[in-house]
């Protein structure tokens, strides 16, 4: 068992009446990617801000790279890199000037800062645009430059707060590849996200955070396993029959049926796969409901969230099928 590179014990933080963090505990092993997953307002940014010394916690203790976030803040800042929720780059400067500036502020010599900027522009596929003002960059390029800037000081621990929020799907997948590349060097990464898919793909371990506290922690598989039973998903031919169908499958096992936010898929927890589909088909047939599709699924992180909080994390899409953000659905507990 190695010594954790990030430890967080009982951190709380309130803004007046808003209890942003009500007690966060975390441990992150060196060289791993740790995902902080939660809906909007869960306390992800506040946690990152405490760990990067931008915000003093009200109570609790946290260390990063062996430095206390309060008493050793100055030393801690030499060991970290941060890319916040909004791309923090200067639009007037060129990409290269932005990186050189950050390098100089990490107190590299002017020459070092320059060569480091070149190297990083190359690594992030931005060399071709390095001498253009950032205001000519696309959203994805800005985000990449922002990530690049967080790496200038060769941090031991990197914090990325919602790195792909606001990006179109193609840029998002591109950015995931960059993130995977930047942790190849052994940097520890703590990243926050509202996207289950993102945490699943990038993170070695995940903490699910809600209302200012960690409600579950583990690997993606562990979290999926925690929900226990499998979920039966079914789609029926006639939407008018949805209530009847839900009533029909309600008593099958250990929970009531839910209607997915798409308004088409009915989901119901089931205990074992054996005989389940037959049972469901029989029940629906008796209720006079025609099936279009029926399947059993291992739980997704989405289901984990639903089980843990009684609320559902929805992924909203805009007209182009792009993810535009996640929020809470109104689905009742399954």
């Amino acid at each position: 068992m190695t010594t954790p590179i990030i430890t967080v014990e009982g951190i709380t933080k309130s803004f007046g009446d808003v209890h942003a963090l009500t007690g966060v505990d975390l441990e992150v092993e060196p060289g791993t990617v740790y995902g902080l997953l939660g809906p909007n307002g869960a306390g992800k940014t506040t946690t990152v801000r405490v760990l990067t010394t931008l915000l003093k916690p009200d109570a609790g203790r946290a260390t990063v790279a062996g430095y206390d976030v309060v008493s050793q803040a100055a030393e801690l800042r030499t060991a970290i890199g941060l890319a916040g929720q909004y791309a923090a780059v200067d639009e007037i400067l060129t990409g290269r000037e932005n990186l050189e500036m950050v390098g100089q502020l990490y107190r590299l010599s002017t020459a070092e800062a320059r060569s480091r900027a070149d190297e990083i522009l190359e690594r992030f596929d931005l060399a071709y645009a390095g001498d253009r003002p950032v205001k000519t960059y696309s959203g994805g390029m800005r985000r990449r430059l922002d990530l690049a800037a967080s790496l200038v000081g060769r941090p031991q621990v990197l914090f990325l707060d919602e790195p792909t929020t606001g990006l179109d799907p193609r840029s998002r997948i591109g950015l995931w590849e960059f993130i995977e590349r930047l942790v190849e060097g052994g940097t520890t990464l703590l990243l926050t996200t509202q996207y289950l898919e993102e945490a699943d793909r990038l993170a070695d371990r995940i903490a699910v955070i809600d209302k200012g506290t960690v409600i579950a922690e583990g690997t993606s598989d562990e979290l999926k396993g925690r929900i226990g039973g499998d979920v039966l998903e079914l789609q029926i031919a006639n939407p008018e029959n949805i209530p009847a169908a839900m009533a029909a499958v309600a008593g099958m096992c250990c929970g009531e049926a839910n209607l997915d936010d798409d308004g088409e898929t009915i989901r119901v927890p089931v205990e074992s796969a054996v005989g389940t589909i037959t049972d469901a088909v029989r029940r629906l047939d008796a209720a006079g409901v025609q099936l279009v599709d029926i399947a059993i699924h291992r739980p997704t992180l989405d289901d984990v969230f639903l089980t843990l909080t009684g609320e559902h994390v929805t992924q909203e899409t805009n007209g182009n099928g792009e993810l535009v953000g996640a929020g809470r659905g109104r689905r009742s507990r399954g």
């Binding site: 990067t52 800042r77 929720q85 800037a149």
Partner: peptide, 17 residues
């Protein structure tokens, strides 16, 4: 508002610079 102050504050630079 652009988040630049956050970045500066997370860097090991002087607090008054």
């Amino acid at each position: 508002n652009k988040g630049l102050i956050d970045r500066f504050r997370s860097l090991p630079m002087s607090r008054s610079a």
